[in-house]
Simulated scan of single mutants.
Amino acid sequence: MCRWVAWCGAQIYLEEVISKPEHSLIIQSREAHSCKTAINADGVGVAWYDGRPDPGLYKNVHPAWSDPNLRQIVRQVRSGLFMAHVRASTGTATSYNNCHPFAVGRWAFMHNGMVGGFDALRKRIDQRIPDHLYLDRRGATDSEALLLMALGAGMEERPVAAMADAVAEAEALSRAHGTTPHMRFAGCWSDGQRVYAARCASDDHAPTLFYRQRPEGTLVVSEPLEGLPEDWTPLPANRALVVSREGIEVMEFGARALAAG
């Protein structure tokens, strides 16, 4: 499964998170520890915010460890809010449009997890995307669909609740027409002002998610980048994390339960 990192705080060079730490995201692309798949070689992507409301994007279908352009970009670009992702596909093709993060307007989103039986559900899930947002459906992943469903559910006004609704709706479709596990979700999304993250699952195996506060900002990661395990706080399952430059807030995620069948 995929690995990702996010930063919110003072402006730093992207390499301080993506390539320099002892267990950096680039290292995790070939040697992840906190997931079943140690290799995450199906693409890499970075979204960063600076002077414009919408994020800059860099994506490549090559593994992060063999992408010299990635190392140059993260060495030169500074940002106070950015996200990066290395992908391990759960079935969809390795292509530019399937690489995370996905961006629509000011929103960026990346994800580690799966919707059970997505191949059989793709048409039903795509039908849950409003027509005015379907033009933004570039790829074929469940992750991109969740972003568009959440935007359709009112993410502009209710960024955590709308994502929870989208995840619950996709899980209900999997329970009715898909396979187990029906939902594994550790997602991260941003409007350029805050970082939102959450984890949940239809069973007891929600993907990992950790955060660490520093004096200059907060890191949110799928697995720790450096230091000792106790230096990082695990986010409990069925919780969401809201990170701003002023601090963090932990809240309920996925309180709405949809009936199976």
Rank of each mutant, 00 (worst) to 15 (best):
E144W: 04
V46W: 01
K59E: 01
L209S: 06
G247P: 08
L81E: 04
L151G: 05
Q213V: 13
Y49C: 05
R214K: 14
G80T: 06
E223A: 02
A103Q: 13
M114W: 03
K123C: 09
L258H: 11
W48S: 10
S29P: 02
D231Q: 11
R214Y: 15
H132D: 14
V115E: 10
I12D: 00
A93E: 14
V77Q: 15
S79Y: 04
E252S: 14
G192H: 07
W189S: 03
Y96A: 10
L147M: 15
G247M: 09
G227E: 05
E223Y: 03
W65C: 05
R52N: 11
V61K: 11
G139H: 05
S202G: 11
A103F: 04
V220H: 08
Q72F: 08
A38N: 03
M163G: 03
R184H: 10
D50H: 12
E15Q: 15
A162C: 06
L235A: 10
V115R: 02
E16N: 09
T90Y: 08
C8G: 08
G192W: 02
A164R: 04
H111P: 10
S95G: 08
A6W: 06
A197R: 05
A176F: 01
T208Y: 02
A32S: 15
V243E: 05
K59H: 12
H177N: 06
Q127A: 15
K36R: 12
T94Y: 05
A47W: 00
G43Q: 04
N98G: 02
T233A: 12
E252D: 15
C188Y: 02
V17A: 10
I39W: 14
A140F: 11
G113P: 01
P181K: 04
I248V: 15
N60G: 12
P215H: 05
A103V: 14
A162H: 01
I18C: 00
A88Y: 14
S89K: 05
V86W: 00
A162R: 01
N98D: 08
A84L: 04
V104K: 03
V243C: 06
V195L: 09
G45V: 10
P215K: 01
G56D: 11
P229H: 09
G254S: 07
H85Y: 07
R3L: 03
A168L: 08
V220K: 08
V44N: 03
P236I: 07
A103R: 03
E230N: 11
M1Y: 06
R175Q: 15
P159E: 13
A41C: 09
G80M: 06
P236K: 08
S143C: 02
T218K: 07
A84P: 06
